[in-house]
């Protein structure tokens, strides 16, 4: 029997069925209208560096530039066109299709309430220049991008992992990184606390402290099926149902059965 083929370059979840004739529609990429504010934004970038593509998608301008021109483009937009806030910066993993990342810079002009996105393509193992001197918000965003996507940033003042631990291996948001984590991630705590040699002793079934063993009688009371603590697993299944009663007949005075006629139900709080 042959194992089914699973692509290794993208291990994220896939649709289990797609019609053979399905062609995904595209959101139209409209040309930038002449004389609009967006056209002036594009002109300002064109003056500073090469613009590969510029279009409007769902009302927002998208400008494609070369990855080495990112600082030049953002500088032109900030200083000439008033885009003084970098609201978001991150990357999209296209390693499988195109061998690189699309880095996007989401800019906002506060005075005109206008947003645009500058995008550039960075090949794997290439770096982008930091935009930290222009926008301080790039400080953490670039660290996060490096941490989770593995896009290197040149001349960043403190390029260190932001979210994952310092000694982490791999970049979790890449498409090659499985959702449940790779081997390093799954054994991280065990390796760190007990050392690698403890992997065999602990074993994969005890690796996860959140794992629940349904026959564990040490840690879990089995409501309605109580057995003595630490009872062997065979006993659990055979255990008969132990009905729970909250009120003993002639029991303690304060623990009484609820009688509907003697109790008052508030229809409203306060």
């Amino acid at each position: 029997m042959m194992r089914p083929y699973t692509p290794k370059d993208n291990v994220q979840k896939k649709a289990y069925y797609t019609d053979r004739f399905w062609v995904a529609p595209r959101i139209p990429e409209e040309p930038v209208p002449e004389g609009s504010d967006y056209a002036e934004d594009v002109a300002a970038v064109k003056k500073a560096c090469k613009v590969l593509n510029a279009y409007i998608q769902r009302g927002q301008l998208v400008i494609y530039v070369n990855s080495e021109d990112n600082v030049t483009a953002l500088k032109a937009l900030k200083e000439e066109r008033g885009y003084d806030m970098l609201s978001e910066l991150s990357a999209v993993d296209f390693l499988a299709e195109r061998g690189g990342f699309e880095v996007f810079y989401q800019l906002l002009n506060l005075n005109a309430a206008r947003r645009l996105r500058v995008k550039c393509f960075v090949e794997e193992n290439h770096a982008v220049e930091s935009v930290n001197p222009l926008y301080r918000s790039a400080d953490w965003a670039e660290r996060e991008m490096w941490d989770l996507m593995g896009v290197k940033v040149n001349n960043h003042p403190y390029l260190k992992r932001l979210i994952m631990p310092d000694d982490w291996e791999g970049h979790p948001l890449r498409k090659t990184y499985p959702l449940e984590g790779d081997e390093f991630a799954q054994w991280y705590e065990v390796d760190k606390i007990f050392g690698k040699e403890a992997r065999d002793i602990i074993g994969p079934e005890n690796r996860d402290p959140g794992r629940i063993d349904r026959y564990d009688t040490e840690r879990f009371a089995r409501l309605g099926h109580e057995v003595p603590r630490g009872a062997p697993a065979e006993m659990v299944d055979k255990a008969e149902e132990t009905p729970i009663s909250y009120q003993e007949e002639e029991g303690v005075f304060l623990i009484q059965k609820l009688s509907a006629e003697n109790s008052k139900v508030l229809d409203k709080r306060r």
Binding site: Y17, A24, I27, R58, Q60, S87
Partner: peptide, 20 residues
């Protein structure tokens, strides 16, 4: 299977109590 949106990208800001 879930809905299949068209190919493309959006960035949508809203004003949450804490900011954008």
């Amino acid at each position: 299977q879930g809905m299949r949106p068209p190919v493309g990208e959006v960035y949508v800001p809203t004003e949450s109590p804490k900011g954008e």
